[in-house]
Design a protein around this nucleic acid. Sequence first.
RNA 1: GCGGGUGUAGCUUAGUGGUAAAGCCCCAGCCUUCCAAGCUGGUCACGAGGGUUCGAUUCCCUCCACCCGCUCCA
Length: 551
Amino acid sequence: MSQPLRDDDSDLMKEVISLCKQRGFVFPSSEIYGGLKSCYDYGPLGVELKRNIMNEWWRAMVHQREDIVGLDASIIMHPRVWEASGHLAGFADPLVDCLISKERFRADNAPRPAVGDALPLSCSDKAQAKAYQAAIAEKYGIELRREGRILHGLKVIDETTVGFFPDGSEEAKTEFPFRGYVSPTLGCPFLSDERMFNLMFRSSLGSIDPLDEMARALDGKALAAAEIRGILEQKMRETAIYLRPETAQAMFVQFANILQAMALKIPFGIAQMGKSFRNEITVEHYTFRSCEFEQMEMEYFVEPGKQKEALEYWKQERLDWYLRYAKEKSKFRLRRHEAQELAHYADDCYDIEYEYPWGWGELEGVASRTDYDLRKHSEHSGVRLTYFDQDAIDPETGKKGRHYFPYVIEPAAGATRTTLMYLLDAFEYDSPRPDAQGREKRRRVLKLHPRLAPYKVAVLPLVKRDGMPEQAREIVQEFFRSGVHAKYDEQHQIGKRYSRHDEVGTPYCLTVDGQTLEDRTVTIRYRDTTEQERIKIDEALHVVKKRLEEA
RNA sequence: GCGGGUGUAGCUUAGUGGUAAAGCCCCAGCCUUCCAAGCUGGUCACGAGGGUUCGAUUCCCUCCACCCGCUCCA
């Protein structure tokens, strides 16, 4: 029986991060220069794992069905793509810091008290209330009345003014500018300026440095900061391009080409995997949230009205896909978005979530995107991005033949997240058991699904003599030729080699021993049970392939 | 970005105002015929930059990175 790591999962992340670095799965990016925030590199084993995961996705989404085709679009697209999609405007969130409590929040989601409302500041406890009371007195010269953990005295006068009303007073003693909202936790109107955090990476296309243009535009002018910003923004825009914040848009932008080239009939899908980039406000949890990440997205186009059943289908299909390779099935769930949680383009959405060591977090969003994207791109480009269905009845004319914007169901998965998730899922310490010397040892093993494992098979001479290495090399060559990723290993004693392969998740070990030289048989050892069987050399490749196929 | 914590070898840890110890790993050799054995030898570290000091890994400052919250969402 396996047991969870220690008492809880709190050290699981540490263990996995450490293993990843030790055994070549994931390294901090640019580490010799001190690392770079949230950037990680996939090492020799990590790249295999991530690739295997992405290949499995591609296989399930594209190769194993007839209604989905692939795309590999340029990461840099026309800037107008992002105007049309709403990312240029909508992807910039106005963020504000509360000057008293220091909490950071989105201005558009903050509570908006009405004119005439009192603004009690609710602190977490008495001590905090006292501290905030003092801070406000010092900064703004007003003495709020404290009642337990609440501070009283502020009131909204009109849309742009709050006042300090000492006890019993009808007249505001002091007035302050009011933004129309307060900080969510404290309820405080003393706020920093709104700052836009554009989540897209901006660069410029073209070999001419836009800085020269900017310098010329500003030369000799005495301007205020806002005016300078306006000019710079203008000059920047002329050559600005953006790194895509999602792979999805290319599939809408290429909708007409793909439809035409492939003669597709609705319902059909377009799938794409690749890098995306977002200037996250905060990065966290190792590779879980980073500015550069990899996605596996598919846009599934359906007739308007059929989106609900397609959503039902895809949310289940995608959950099943994760479960197919997972060890702990109970750590997955579907969670439907609340109405106010939905993005502006969505009419419904499910998240596929995994219970990470820090709690439930998203792996994939399966969103019902309506016809928003195709409609927008059609408006902005002037190109008709509708589908003509000759059998459908046009609801307006009642006749056969209908042009419409297809509705879209989008399963959007995080490939980097999925990679982290399967590492966490596979990581395990076996129960302690005595080793050959009778000492208690716990086996550290990555119980990755065989098709995800970096090495499929290790080929090992039992000892480094008597022709065993030669025989083993012959066997491993056969695997190389057939494209099954194999590893020849002759260092250290056999037990150590087994456990090293357990640690990186190699599901099968083939061992050449004395008997091999007599009857051309080898032992095959299974990672999860450590049990062994004897098989013929000539069957080894077939046996491994079959196991991989059936796993 | 703000608040709190952390930073010594590939990994896990010890330690000191006089340039550092161990276990595991790794490398070479001996030994070894199935689950991290043993023996011998070896490589490798005080996150970066300033300051205080005769002297800093240790004290101070700044930066960088990581972890935990606020926020985000693939």
